[in-house]
Design a protein around this nucleic acid. Structure first.
Lengths: 129, 129
DNA sequence: ATGTCACATCATGATATCACGATATGACAG
DNA sequence: CTGTCATATCGTGATATCATGATGTGACAT
């Protein structure tokens, strides 16, 4: 029961769906997500705790960075749920933008490892244009 | 995006999970759910609107009663999510009790149709004993 | 057309969740 | 053992969600 409710909470906020969609592309450390998803570090961190409590993601430390990844148990279910709404998600401008920025940020890795810390990508001031 | 968030909201509350689990057993009208799940009619109704907005359930009228059913599109996904947590759900005492009471309430139908209105089952005062 | 009854919606107060800035933690470097 | 830096947690005010009782609505019977 509670597991289902926690999974629901993990999915019930647009910011968290963005995070999960990004993690479907690649494992990411917090600083990479801060840059790619353009949200405050504390905001991001608290959402990460929420989806971690749901057992959807797990963490691993590498030097100073903490990397987040979908858990092996949750990944298939998340993929199924996302897949059943793929078209709606791909049509979302915010999601599309996230995808691009995640790729940009991953390009800055050395040997597939994030070494740079936050603040590496342009934080374009307004998305209105 | 928003579809996923709405699905998440549908799953993110224990009361709604109980409702969905009950509807997995059988289509049910509101008065049957009021009796079986032992919750206030207005409380139930507002949760039903929440999961309806998510496209998870749909309604049909029969005489005075409104019957709720999982939609054909959402049912497989809900079954998958529930199935991946079946053991935890079956272990939940509230869910187990709901299952029994749903069956009891369904027994009161005539020709597989609810004809009785709410208040047909004992609303046992405390579950503490 | 009027009353009845199942269901929906509204109003309200209590609680939870959100974003954000400030502060704490903890692993590593020097 | 001290400073630094990535991340976590805390504090706060704004907003959303919850349960509940009161009221509204709409389909049917008479």
């Amino acid at each position: 029961m509670n597991d289902v409710v926690l999974l629901g909470k993990a999915l019930s906020d647009p910011t968290r769906v963005r995070i999960l969609y990004a993690l479907l592309q690649s494992d990411l450390c917090v600083c990479e997500m801060v840059d790619a998803l353009e949200m405050g570090q504390s905001t991001l961190s608290s959402h990460l705790q929420t989806i971690r409590q749901a057992g959807v993601v797990e963490t691993s430390r590498r030097h100073k960075m903490v990397s987040y990844a979908l858990t092996a148990e949750a990944r298939p279910l998340i993929e199924t749920i996302i897949a059943s709404n793929r078209s709606a998600l791909e049509a979302d401008r915010r999601i599309a933008r996230d995808q691009v920025r995640v790729q940009e940020r991953i390009q800055l890795r050395k040997n597939d490892v994030c070494v740079l810390g936050p603040g590496q990508l342009d934080r374009s001031e307004d998305t209105k244009k």
